[in-house]
Lab assay of single mutants.
Amino acid sequence: SAVVMEEGSPGEVPVLVEPPGLEDVEAALGMDRRTDAYSRSSSVSSQEEKSLHAEELVGRGIPIERVVSSEGGRPSVDLSFQPSQPLSKSSSSPELQTLQDILGDPGDKADVGRLSPEVKARSQSGTLDGESAAWSASGEDSRGQPEGPLPSSSPRSPSGLRPRGYTISDSAPSRRGKRVERDALKSRATASNAEKVPGINPSFVFLQLYHSPFFGDESNKPILLPNESQSFERSVQLLDQIPSYDTHKIAVLYVGEGQSNSELAILSNEHGSYRYTEFLTGLGRLIELKDCQPDKVYLGGLDVCGEDGQFTYCWHDDIMQAVFHIATLMPTKDVDKHRCDKKRHLGNDFVSIVYNDSGEDFKLGTIKGQFNFVHVIVTPLDYECNLVSLQCRKDMEGLVDTSVAKIVSDRNLPFVARQMALHANMASQVHHSRSNPTDIYPSKWIARLRHIKRLRQRICEEAAYSNPSLPLVHPPSHSKAPAQTPAEPTPGYEVGQRKRLISSVEDFTEFV
């Protein structure tokens, strides 16, 4: 048969007729292969192709491409040299491709048809291009793949890379869960390890502090508590009631339409708007009261037996805890006409967050109470924005700035309102402590230090009264110190430094 060459192609190359033996071998191979691939376009007849790359030819070592076609129900084999250009295909004639002069020997084609199974398996396991790669995943090629499931790999992101949580363990979102698992493993320790309690022994800490320079003076030496005195035992138990972190309780009120001037209507609300609910979820963490331990979680007086509701929101960081007394989460009882059960919590909070959804101005004093010092007013606006402002009593104007209003988005509203309420509550605590000038409020841990110092002074006084020969370590507060001759004046800087060093040991009130 003659071949018409394309323009620009090399000279004529004689194409030899395939021997009958080659056709029989390739026909047997075509019957084993699956003929249901995917359909081509209507211009080209339905056909199945599979590209198999052999590394070497037997005796020649030339890479070839073998295409199996099922045109007219008769499979045909096409061998081509890759750099050459194939002729145009037609549905009426068999596929013809040019070969190099080196394939002119018909014996070479017979060798190609009689490829060993080793070469076929190696060509099938190679990388296939384009559409033949999808075909190689079918059941027909499963014989050339190794048996057994593939090893499982770690989760992959859409980009093909490992997620960040699997790369950096410290930033993994499941870090707290692993800590819980470690605690569970520790709890399952053997009885021999049960006595080993991690941490620092208080006796060891005391020993280090006792021999430090801070205890060089007799006034700073630790003293032993009497065991037989019940009054001192009660004082030590009272110390446990003062937490070592700051605590805040903040009221949250929802004002519906037409309720801006009605205290009873505001306290009777059992739910609010959708934006109000989203605002609550951002204030803190939802907790169930019956599962809380009052000595570990500050509840601000809420009952854990269901008297004040089942849930509330709280927030904490390293040095403070805040609980929100939310009116809509507290039960509304029919027998309580004046809502006294709610007001006994909300009316005693220094700061209230008022979500004013009424469309009218909310005035300070609508919720009557002796300790309502500051109101954080949240007014929802259009386009997911809110107006946040402050209202306070006249005696609080020096501590709280009420002249600045803020426009905040719904997303950042819980954070801004919480921070403003916490700052206002700190100012309210300082303002409330002014009624007792001898006990200015600095912080909870300073209050613990003052309680310890008062307890020490009482013990020293009782020891001096029981044994008059012992001198008083600290003179009583009601006694007057003996007159001392004025010492020589020293520079102001040295006096300030000495006073600062003494105050650092005794108390921190002056620095606050």
Rank of each mutant, 00 (worst) to 15 (best):
L299Y: 15
L381T: 03
V335F: 13
G347A: 15
N261K: 10
L267W: 05
G258M: 04
F373G: 05
R411W: 05
F362M: 05
R411P: 06
M330G: 04
A421G: 02
P486D: 09
E462M: 06
L253N: 02
Y383E: 05
Q237T: 11
M426A: 02
I319M: 15
I250M: 03
L501N: 15
T490Q: 11
Q429E: 06
G301Q: 10
S244Y: 15
R344Y: 09
V236E: 09
D341C: 13
V408L: 03
F350S: 03
S504H: 10
Y276Q: 00
Q419V: 10
G301K: 07
G492S: 07
S229M: 07
E288H: 10
D246Y: 05
E488L: 08
M426E: 01
L253G: 01
P471N: 11
F508A: 15
A487W: 09
P243H: 05
R339I: 12
Y276W: 03
P243E: 14
H316Q: 14
A424Y: 04
D361R: 05
L399S: 06
E462R: 07
E360G: 05
E278R: 11
C305S: 14
N412V: 05
D410F: 00
V255E: 00
N412D: 02
A322E: 05
D318V: 06
M320Q: 15
R234I: 06
N372A: 07
S466G: 11
Y493N: 15
A487V: 07
S443D: 08
I446C: 14
C460F: 12
S504N: 10
F371L: 15
Q321V: 14
L267A: 03
L225V: 14
Y465D: 13
K343W: 10
G398Y: 11
D507Y: 14
S268V: 02
H431Y: 14
M420E: 04
D303A: 07
E270I: 05
N467V: 14
I440A: 10
L387E: 06
S466L: 11
N412G: 05
C392V: 13
Y245H: 06
S389E: 15
T379Q: 15
L299T: 10
E462F: 06
N412R: 04
K337S: 13
R285F: 14
S504T: 10
P489E: 14
L289W: 15
V252Q: 00
I377P: 00
T438Q: 10
K249D: 15
E278G: 05
P243L: 05
P491M: 13
N227C: 09
F311H: 08
P222I: 05
N269S: 02
Q259S: 02
L387S: 05
L289M: 10
V404W: 11
T247G: 04
L470D: 15
D334H: 14
L455R: 06
E263L: 03
N269E: 03
M320T: 15
L381S: 03
K342A: 07
C305F: 11
T490C: 14
P482T: 13
A447Q: 14
C460E: 14
V255W: 02
L449E: 14
M330R: 05
Y355L: 00
Y313C: 08
F371M: 14
L422N: 00
E278S: 08
P486Y: 10
C305D: 14
L283Q: 00
H375C: 14
S235Y: 15
N425I: 03
R339N: 11
H248A: 15
G365D: 13
K343A: 13
D308T: 10
K221R: 11
Y493I: 11
A327Q: 04
R454V: 13
E233C: 11
R411F: 06
C314L: 13
F279D: 00
C392T: 08
R458G: 11
E307I: 09
F350G: 02
D395S: 09
N467W: 12
T281K: 10
S443L: 14
N467H: 11
E278N: 13
Q419S: 05
C392G: 03
F311I: 06
T485N: 13
R234H: 13
P243G: 06
S260M: 14
Q230F: 14
L238P: 08
R339S: 11
F279L: 02
Q293V: 11
L472Q: 15
I319S: 07
A447N: 11
M330W: 04
D317T: 03
Y465G: 09
E510S: 11
D349F: 12
T247K: 13
L422Y: 06
G309M: 15
C292D: 15
G359Y: 05
G492N: 11
H478F: 09
G256H: 02
Y465H: 07
G272R: 03
P380I: 00
V236Q: 08
R418V: 07
Y355T: 01
Q484I: 12
T509K: 10
S219Y: 06
P468I: 11
V236C: 11
S358I: 01
E462L: 09
V505F: 09
L472V: 12
Q419H: 07
W315Y: 11
Y276T: 00
T328P: 04
C460G: 14
N372F: 04
I377M: 08
L413C: 15
R339V: 14
I287S: 08
E270A: 07
H451D: 14
G284K: 06
G258S: 04
D334F: 12
M330T: 05
L224M: 12
T485K: 09
P243W: 05
R275P: 00
H431I: 14
P489T: 11
W315H: 06
T281Q: 14
